[in-house]
Amino acid sequence: MSKIIVTTSGKGGVGKTTTSASFSTGLAARGKKVAVIDFDVGLRNLDLIMGCERRVVFDFVNVLQGEANLRQALIRDKTYDNLHILAASQTRDKDALTLEGVEKVLNDLVAEGFEYIICDSPAGIEKGAHHAMYFADEALIVTNPEVSSVRDSDRVLGLLQAKTRNAERGIKVKEHLVLTRYNPERVEKGEMLSVKDVQDILAIPLLGIIPESPTVLTSSNSGTPVIADAKSEAGQAYADLVARFLGEDKPHRFMQVEKKGLFNKLFGN
């Protein structure tokens, strides 16, 4: 059985693409056959974060318009053979996507035996985001601990349960909260919403907390999903998140301020 999962948030810049990249890489590392699709036509980024930008020949729009077949457009990940990336088109605009076209590509991916199909949504709640979420069975709601992000996520949750294929068939889209850029120190000072505050408003199950970490930026710039960096807290947090998604019982970490010893103060990061 294939599962279609959308990574969405409403608000931009909260970590959707970072999450899509690490989530799909994490699933692939556990042997799953995974495809990840960039729906952000015109502003493609996923290929950069996955480090395959120099191997993009055909893209999602080419496949939709019959200019290339799906196999030609799928880019094999540099580390995992069972992970494939379908890049967005940088030169077209969002009108190039149609629901029928998206459905056909998703059906073809299912027929190819992909177990997990991750749809990386663009920001906003317009057409692009609608296309990305419409066929989803499950959703990762990426949220920053900050009021505007939480409100946008709330809006998106409403759309997920109203404007998707499953919703139209009376099936609930399964929701997962991914709280990114979490900084326990700032939460303690009252500068950021806490996990509890966010959950109180959104009322959906928490899949993972990703701590704010400089590694996320350096990983993005080097084209390696942060999950590959097992030493970084963000990498470990994404690995935990994938384990939880696959049904393992992992306690949430990185919620409390770490008491730093002298050694850590001097040499820690």
Binding site: R151, D152, D154, R155, L157, G158, L159, Q161, A162, A203
Partner: peptide
């Protein structure tokens, strides 16, 4: 019985 979300 479901939450009424922002925008609904």
């Amino acid at each position: 019985s479901e939450p009424v979300r922002s925008g609904q």
